[in-house]
C-alpha cells in the first residue's frame, strides 16, 4: 500500500539526507566564484568568473587534465578487452577452478586501494620497472577490469548459449558470430562498464599516489593544490569540471543498464 502524500517526518529525513550528501558539493561550487583568494570565508565577500579564466591559462591544470584523460582512456580500453575476455571465459565455459577465478577477478575492487597501491609499488620496485604513464595505467586497470567484468558477465549469463551455437550452425565462424551476435547483445553492458571504469579511473587518488612517478593526474594535482595553494578558487573550478566529467558517464551508464538489472561495480 502506498499513501498519497509523503509523511512530513519522512520528507524532512530525506531532505536532511540529501543536504548532508550534496551540501558540501554545493559549497565547492560556490567557492569557485568567490573573490577571496587565500582563505575560504563564509559568506564569500563577492562573486566573480575570474577563476575560470585563470584556470584556463594555467598550463599545469591542462597537463594534469590531459594525463588523467589519457590514463582513463587507456585503462578503460585495456579493461574492456581483458574484462570481456574473462567474462566470456567464466560464463561460457566450464573448467576447473572457474568459481575461484571469478572471485579472484572481483577481489581487487574489494581490496582497500592502499593495499593495491602498496602491492603494485613493491612489485614494480622488485621488477625494476620505472614509474611512468604505464604504471599508472596498470594500477587503474586493476579495478577497471572488475567493473567491465561485472557488467559483461551479467549480460553473458542472460545470453542463451544456444544463440552462439545457432549462429555457428547457420554458417558464421567465430569472428562473425562475435560481430553479429555477441557484440550487439553485450554492447550496452560494455558501454556502461566502460563509462564507469572511465569515471573511476579519472578521479582515482590512492592507487595513483603509489604508482605515479613525476606525473600528476588531475586528482593528484588537486591534492597538492590544497596543501600548497597558489590561487585557491582555481582548485574549485577544476573540481567542478571533474564532477561534470565523472557524473555524466555514470549517469549514462545508469540509464543504459536501468532495465537490465545488471550490477555495475560501483563502490570503489
Amino acid at each position: 500500500m502506498r499513501s498519497e502524500r509523503t509523511p512530513l517526518p519522512l520528507a524532512l529525513a530525506a531532505g536532511a539526507g540529501l543536504l548532508f550528501l550534496l551540501g558540501p558539493l554545493l559549497l565547492i561550487f560556490v567557492y569557485a566564484f568567490t573573490t577571496e583568494e587565500r582563505s575560504f570565508a563564509w559568506p564569500p565577500p563577492g562573486l566573480t568568473l575570474r577563476w575560470f579564466a585563470v584556470a584556463w591559462e594555467r598550463p599545469d591544470v591542462w597537463a594534469a587534465l590531459f594525463l588523467s584523460l589519457k590514463v582513463a582512456a587507456v585503462s578503460t580500453l585495456l579493461a574492456l578487452v581483458l574484462g570481456t575476455l574473462v567474462a566470456a571465459a567464466v560464463s561460457r565455459t566450464r573448467f576447473f577452478g572457474r568459481e575461484t577465478i571469478s572471485l579472484l577477478v572481483i577481489l581487487p575492487i574489494a581490496l582497500p586501494g592502499i593495499v593495491t597501491g602498496i602491492a603494485l609499488r613493491s612489485a614494480f620496485g622488485m621488477m625494476e620497472i620505472p614509474f611512468s604513464f604505464w604504471t599508472i595505467v596498470l594500477g587503474h586497470a586493476t579495478f577497471c577490469i572488475v567493473v567491465v567484468y561485472n557488467n559483461a558477465v551479467a549480460r553473458f549469463r542472460r545470453l542463451s548459449g544456444s544463440l552462439v551455437e545457432a549462429s555457428m550452425d547457420l554458417g558464421a565462424d567465430g569472428f562473425q558470430t562475435f560481430r553479429h551476435i555477441i557484440l550487439p547483445n553485450i554492447g550496452s553492458a560494455l558501454l556502461a562498464g566502460g563509462m564507469l571504469a572511465f569515471a573511476l579511473s579519472f578521479d582515482e587518488v590512492i592507487v595513483t599516489t603509489f604508482t605515479a612517478g613525476q606525473q600528476q593526474t588531475l586528482p593528484l594535482w588537486m591534492l597538492e593544490e590544497l596543501i600548497r595553494p597558489r590561487q585557491r578558487p582555481v582548485t574549485n573550478v577544476v573540481a567542478m569540471v571533474v564532477v561534470l566529467v565523472t557524473f555524466l558517464p555514470i549517469l549514462a551508464a545508469f540509464f543504459l543498464t536501468r532495465d537490465g538489472g545488471e550490477t555495475a561495480g560501483v563502490g570503489k
Binding site: S160, S162, L163, E165, A166, S167, M168, D169, L170, G171, A172, D173, I181, N185
Partner: peptide, 18 residues
C-alpha cells in the same frame, strides 16, 4: 566445424537472435 556443414538445426529453445 558446424559452420562448414550443410546441416542446420532447429533448437529446442529456438535460439532466435533477440
Amino acid at each position: 566445424p558446424p559452420y562448414r556443414r550443410a546441416v542446420n538445426t532447429v533448437f529446442q529453445d529456438y535460439a532466435l537472435f533477440p
